[in-house]
């Protein structure tokens, strides 16, 4: 078993235009693509369909080859040892969650409307997502209000999630993750929301990518911190 420090890099960055299926059946692929298009719809900006979120999810569920990109984005890390065992078991669970979840979704759609999810019009697809989630379609976030929440953990894995919650999380990840994982094609997910992310992962390792210009350029500590004016001894380190 090799240490995580010595995991080797293999494979290539995922091609977002690939139509090779590594996990989904053709029908599952089409269903997940249609679902993703209702979770992040296409409007005057591209949505999950154009970002190739389905490719991202298919690769994730295919096994443990596409879990961790190499730091420089040149390929993927070959997970080894206990971590490989843990990830195999995690992905096997998630494969079952998807396979069963998709089958149940279709069964529900057939019993309600006589057709599988992919054949429904968008309004019925949204209705099917409401049934799947057990909650109404989310309404718009509006200004002028205060909406309290409770504290939560910052440790954000998909362990233990059911089909609907996992799907929403994975669609979001496929829309916004670095393009090396197969989604966020051409960084279009980032462009939709105005995130000026790096062109390549490698650019985050050597100073090529910088957000310097988004910091405040003209400032004086003494203006920001009136306390300093009351001091005679403060001085910035040089």
């Amino acid at each position: 078993m090799s240490s995580k420090a010595d995991w080797t890099t293999f494979l290539e960055p995922v091609d977002p235009d690939s139509s090779d299926r590594l996990f989904f059946s053709p029908h599952e692929w089409d269903t997940v693509e249609a679902l993703s298009a209702r979770i992040i719809p296409t409007d005057h900006d591209p949505g999950a369909r154009e970002a190739r979120v389905v490719v991202f999810i298919d690769r994730y569920l295919s096994g443990i080859n596409y879990i961790f990109a190499a730091a420089d984005g040149s390929g993927f890390l070959r997970i080894d040892g206990h971590y490989a065992t843990a990830w195999r078991s995690r992905i096997a669970d998630m494969q079952r969650t998807y396979r069963d979840g998709l089958a149940q979704l279709d069964a529900r759609c057939r019993s309600e409307w006589g057709e599988p999810f992919v054949s429904l019009d968008e309004d019925r697809q949204d209705r099917a997502l409401e049934l799947l989630s057990g909650a109404p379609k989310p309404g718009p976030v509006t200004l002028g209000t205060t909406e309290p929440a409770s504290t939560f953990t910052q440790f954000l894995t998909d362990d233990g999630l059911g089909f609907f919650d996992a799907l929403c999380l994975h669609v979001k990840q496929g829309f916004y993750a670095d393009p090396v994982y197969g989604g966020n094609k051409g960084r279009l997910g980032w462009r939709v929301i105005g995130f000026e992310g790096p062109e390549k992962l490698k650019d985050t390792m050597d100073g090529t990518y910088s957000t310097d210009s988004l910091f405040v350029q003209d400032y004086s500590w003494a203006d920001l911190i009136p306390q300093l004016k009351a001091q005679t001894t403060w001085a910035l380190p040089t």
Partner: peptide
């Protein structure tokens, strides 16, 4: 960052999700 934007009450899906993130 985008995937994990700290936003309790972020809509889970649909046009509301996309609009909220974009806005």
């Amino acid at each position: 960052h985008p995937i994990n934007m700290v936003f309790p009450g972020r809509p889970a899906w649909g046009q509301a999700f996309k609009d909220a993130d974009r806005t």
